[in-house]
Design a protein around this nucleic acid. Structure first.
Length: 570
RNA sequence: GGCGCGGUAGCUCAGUUGGUUAGAGCGAACGACUCAUAAUCGUUAGGUCGGGGGUUCGAGUCCCCCCCACGCCA
């Protein structure tokens, strides 16, 4: 049996993500996971929260809570929202877990053993009032170039000049406002990625069928300027994985933690352990260790384009550098950005729709369908309320929902609430089945290839076939002269509803479940044989006319939401 | 400034290794039907494929230059 390990880029802990974040990783990953499960394959779908680093500490301080408590709460919040969107993670872990602490320290130790870690002394800005070293962007002062008084330590937002914190005039901490800053010497560990360059490049060159977006970004980082640079993997912070060499202390590194970019991807693996610890599985190594059964696993990662360098270079450096038989990613599916109504989604400015707000307005399926059918695969795409309204109303309410409605209601009024009996297929039905079969095979191929938009378009075309058929055979006419013929047509129509529910489940799981329930169908096997699947509901099988599956979005709602989400999140 | 990804019908997008009259959905117009969530189905309209050169028997599809948008980096 095929086995699929699937991970979505792990969302950062400080706050609720917007729809652009959702469609860039978690949602398409869920689509793929659901599809593979529906095909009967064994799937392990993992995601987690990325919890370490300065932004988490500051967010916690702002909330007046200890950082561990803050993260625990926010993890719960994100977890609930994920459930709301029906993201079917086998486990939603935490990068701050004990498992990840151990594994991160293990990898660092292995990398050191392999000669891939070096110590570097550098100077960083230390704030006495804050009692901590400050990342460049948390220091502000007057720009020596243009005189702008809120230039950050890494760059001036006014003149865009790249800066070093020591360049600033009257530098101060943006956390406390303190001006008691000094450059202090500190020692950090660097991962020698530069030594891995050839190995990484060879690996990437031999990957087949990867999205252009993925490989072009990777190659750029490998060969741009001086090539792949070594990167610091430690920080002078309290919140994080303490620096250790495996189980041993790391002399000179006391009080330091690993930098978030180092421990975050390792959480993909640690999450497998958490999955076992949570009692949901028994053996995580058969997914992650090629010497323990993971040889036949296909590992697919999903992420936005901003995360590609970490997944094509940094994390593989960790894996390959360890010289241990860890499972390396097989396919990286990356996405461009989703824009919002002519601009970018902005977390800091509260522009756009955030995951919690989206669920307050409409059920998950509406968002899932629109976002996936407009996924930014080949280039950035754009969310507009107008497009959202027309797409969702047309596709879900008119084409799919109304199909279920017209068939079931017609049957109830002309026959009974049970599958009618009698009649036999004609050439028209044979043709319909042929067309359906061809489209279903296309749909499968596109789903296997993770062609998200194309899959959605094909699924919609499958829905349309049902409407075309009904329109053509017109059971409301045939019933007048040939009731048996009408019975056969409607029997097929009812079975089509069930077929559609099964095929659509990866995109719109709730609606799919509702339709299956209405059809009183307790099986949902994938239609390997479409003709057979269309006989699953036999004559006499009772059903219930479903509630309106998708209500339409009104013009008033659209206008209201358009205004509500234009500005600042309240 | 460098690099990357794009610029295809009003809108959102497909267009394989260059090959007959450039496609889909929505929107629009017209028609059919009336079972259904004023739904559905059909037909039609509409594009010098960002601009200009070049290679080729032939280019949206390859090469060069330019313009525009977005992003990343300096």
């Amino acid at each position: 049996m095929q086995r699929h390990l699937i991970t979505s880029a792990i969302p950062y802990i400080n706050g609720i993500k917007h729809l652009g974040n959702l469609v860039g990783s978690q949602l398409p990953a869920d689509l793929f996971a659901r599809y593979q499960r529906a095909r009967g394959r064994e799937v392990l779908f993992l995601c987690a929260t990325d919890e370490h680093g300065t932004p988490a500490e500051l967010a916690a301080a702002k909330a007046g809570k200890p950082v561990a408590e803050y993260c625990a709460e926010m993890h719960e919040v994100q977890s609930e929202i994920a459930k709301g969107f029906r993201l079917s993670f086998d486990h939603f872990g935490r990068s701050s877990s004990e498992a990840n602490h151990k594994l991160t320290q293990h990898f660092a130790g292995r990398l050191a053993d392999q000669g891939l870690i070096r110590e570097v002394s550098e100077t960083q800005m230390y704030s006495h009032a804050d009692g901590r070293f400050l990342p460049d962007r948390y220091i502000e002062g007057t720009c020596p170039n243009c005189g702008f008084d809120s230039a950050r330590g890494d760059q001036c937002d006014n003149c865009t000049k790249q800066l070093d914190p020591v360049d600033l005039i009257n530098p101060h901490s943006t956390i406390s406002g303190s001006t008691e800053l000094e450059m202090r010497e500190t020692k950090h560990l660097y991962l020698c990625q530069s030594q891995m360059k050839d190995q990484l490049e060879e690996w990437i060159d031999t990957r087949e069928g990867w999205p252009v977006l993925t490989t072009s970004i990777a190659k750029k980082w490998l060969n741009d300027g001086d090539g792949l640079q070594d990167r610091g993997i430690t920080r002078d912070l309290d919140w994080g994985v303490p620096v250790q060499k495996g189980d041993e202390p790391w002399p000179g590194m006391e009080g330091k933690v690993f930098y978030v970019w180092f421990d975050a991807p390792i959480e993909y693996i640690a999450c497998g352990q958490e999955w076992v610890d949570a009692g949901k599985g028994t053996d995580w190594e058969r997914w992650w260790r090629t010497d323990k059964g993971a040889d036949d696993v296909t590992y697919t990662q999903f992420m936005g384009k901003d995360n590609v360098p970490f997944h094509t270079l940094s994390f593989p450096s960790t894996i390959l550098g360890s010289a241990e038989p860890w499972k390396l990613v097989d396919y990286i599916k990356s996405f461009n950005y989703l824009n919002y109504d002519g601009g970018q989604f902005s977390t800091s400015r509260g522009r756009g729709v955030f995951m919690d707000q989206a669920l307050e307005i409409l059920p998950a399926d509406y968002w899932r369908w629109w976002l996936l059918s407009h996924a930014p695969e080949s280039s950035d795409s754009e969310f507009t309320w107008d497009n959202f309204q027309t797409s969702v109303n047309k596709d879900l309410a008119d084409v799919l929902g109304n199909f279920a409605s017209r068939v079931t209601k017609f049957c109830r009024s002309k026959f009974t609430e049970a599958v009618p009996e009698g009649g036999a297929y004609t050439e028209r039905e044979t043709r319909l089945i042929e067309e359906l079969t061809a489209k279903v095979r296309d749909y499968e191929a596109q789903m296997e290839a993770i062609e998200v938009r194309k899959s959605a378009a094909t699924l919609r075309a499958i829905w349309v076939l049902g409407n075309e058929y009904l329109q053509e055979v017109a059971p409301w006419s045939t019933i007048k002269e040939d009731p048996e013929m009408a019975a056969m047509q409607i029997r097929l129509g009812l079975n089509l509803i069930r077929l559609y529910a099964i095929l659509s489940a990866p995109f719109i799981p709730d609606a799919s479940a509702q339709l299956l329930t209405a059809m009183h169908s307790d099986t949902a096997d994938w239609p390997e044989d479409v003709a057979a699947a269309l006989e699953a509901l036999p004559a006499g099988h009772a059903f219930t006319v479903p509630e309106v599956t998708f209500r339409k979005i009104t013009d008033d709602e659209r206008a209201d939401w358009q205004e509500r989400f234009a500005g600042v999140r309240t």
